Simulated scan of single mutants.
Amino acid sequence: MLMLGAAVALGLAVAGGATWWNYPTAQSETVPDDDLPVPPVPPRIAEGEDYDKCLSMVQNDPSGAFTFADTWQTGGGGDGAVHCRALAEIELGDPEEGAALLDELGNKNTALPAARAAILGQAGQAWMMANTPQHAYDSATKALALLPDDPDLLIDRAIASSGLEHYTEADDDLFRALDIDPRRGDALVLRAAARRHLEHLDLASADVERALELDPEDPDAFLERGILRQRRGNVSGAPSNTNILE
């Protein structure tokens, strides 16, 4: 599934509401200055030279892509123009507007289910960038109605659920994602954080250790392990895990 980059990970594993990855959480007040991620090969819902040209401009010249898409849409560019404009809006730092356009497009487009699911998945991630987890949850749910066994979509919905503090639902979706792809270290760390919030510390620790078996240098797993050690009162063991991100 081609999405807006890696899963827009909520700051589940961070004490005090700080973000875990570089995207804003439901508690964040601003969008980071870094460019918001747009896939190098977005899901295609149209064909033609104008569509190809517009998509090729999104990352390197988002203002140009926006202007091109706007003019093209006025001239009858249809869904292709809307898709390109939405991605340009996100790249320009307006994920809320981009998410709304992607949601509308995914809801009405007549493309194949996989493409529609990818568009709705992009919408969900953009809603998380806009600090709107309920909208993100709704978009991911609609995407999963089209592709119910897609692990990326399950992970994205789990992130949105966690943003709503619905940790049991997050745990359920991450369990399904890992049942489909047991080697998803990101899902293991996210599930560990959700389980920590549910006070299932032994299960959370097991998930972190499994994530570190898959990637012994995973900084997110180290961070979550440090937080779990702090929760267990092992203060001396925590700094060696959290300092890796400094």
Rank of each mutant, 00 (worst) to 15 (best):
residue 184 R to I: 09
residue 86 A to W: 12
residue 42 P to R: 00
residue 61 D to M: 08
residue 54 C to A: 11
residue 184 R to P: 06
residue 206 A to T: 13
residue 237 G to M: 04
residue 15 A to E: 12
residue 219 P to S: 03
residue 135 H to F: 11
residue 27 Q to W: 15
residue 26 A to L: 10
residue 213 E to K: 07
residue 209 E to G: 00
residue 144 L to Q: 07
residue 10 L to N: 10
residue 203 L to G: 09
residue 11 G to N: 02
residue 169 E to T: 10
residue 86 A to F: 10
residue 1 M to G: 05
residue 162 S to I: 11
residue 119 I to K: 00
residue 30 T to P: 04
residue 186 D to Q: 03
residue 2 L to S: 15
residue 225 R to I: 07
residue 28 S to H: 03
residue 160 A to R: 07
residue 74 T to K: 14
residue 231 R to C: 06
residue 87 L to W: 05
residue 235 V to G: 10
residue 156 D to Q: 12
residue 216 P to N: 09
residue 68 F to Y: 10
residue 143 A to M: 05
residue 127 W to Q: 00
residue 36 L to F: 05
residue 99 A to W: 13
residue 226 G to R: 00
residue 176 R to G: 06
residue 189 V to N: 01
residue 139 S to R: 11
residue 215 D to T: 03
residue 166 H to R: 15
residue 244 I to V: 14
residue 73 Q to R: 13
residue 214 L to G: 02
residue 46 A to Q: 02
residue 121 G to K: 04
residue 230 Q to D: 12
residue 94 D to H: 07
residue 146 L to Q: 07
residue 117 A to D: 00
residue 60 N to M: 07
residue 13 A to H: 15
residue 133 P to Y: 07
residue 85 R to Q: 14
residue 123 A to C: 06
residue 117 A to S: 01
residue 232 R to S: 14
residue 81 A to G: 07
residue 53 K to E: 13
residue 44 R to K: 07
residue 121 G to T: 02
residue 41 V to I: 08
residue 112 L to W: 13
residue 166 H to G: 06
residue 243 N to Q: 11
residue 133 P to F: 03
residue 114 A to K: 09
residue 30 T to H: 14
residue 89 E to M: 12
residue 185 G to D: 09
residue 21 W to Q: 14
residue 152 D to W: 14
residue 78 G to I: 02
residue 137 Y to K: 08
residue 213 E to L: 06
residue 187 A to P: 01
residue 118 A to M: 03
residue 226 G to C: 04
residue 115 A to H: 00
residue 222 F to P: 00
residue 162 S to T: 12
residue 165 E to I: 09
residue 111 A to L: 03
residue 73 Q to D: 12
residue 143 A to Y: 07
residue 50 D to N: 09
residue 233 G to C: 01
residue 226 G to N: 02
residue 99 A to D: 12
residue 147 L to N: 07
residue 236 S to W: 10
residue 90 I to N: 01
residue 246 E to P: 02
residue 163 G to W: 12
residue 137 Y to T: 00
residue 45 I to H: 09
residue 32 P to E: 03
residue 77 G to F: 05
residue 156 D to M: 15
residue 94 D to N: 13
residue 201 L to D: 08
residue 143 A to W: 05
residue 48 G to P: 07
residue 44 R to M: 08
residue 59 Q to R: 15
residue 47 E to V: 05
residue 180 I to E: 07
residue 2 L to R: 11
residue 167 Y to F: 14
residue 81 A to C: 05
residue 20 W to P: 00
residue 231 R to P: 02
residue 85 R to L: 11
residue 23 Y to P: 02
residue 83 H to E: 10
residue 151 P to H: 05
residue 77 G to L: 06
residue 245 L to M: 06
residue 87 L to H: 01
residue 185 G to H: 09
residue 182 P to W: 10
residue 130 A to F: 06
residue 216 P to M: 00
residue 17 G to R: 03
residue 211 A to W: 11
residue 43 P to G: 00
residue 16 G to P: 04
residue 152 D to R: 14
residue 212 L to F: 03
residue 121 G to C: 00
residue 48 G to S: 05
residue 164 L to Q: 14
residue 79 D to Q: 11
residue 148 P to H: 08
residue 111 A to K: 01
residue 113 P to E: 08
residue 35 D to S: 04
residue 133 P to T: 00
residue 138 D to R: 05
residue 33 D to H: 12
residue 33 D to S: 11
residue 140 A to E: 11
residue 113 P to M: 02
residue 119 I to N: 01
residue 203 L to T: 06
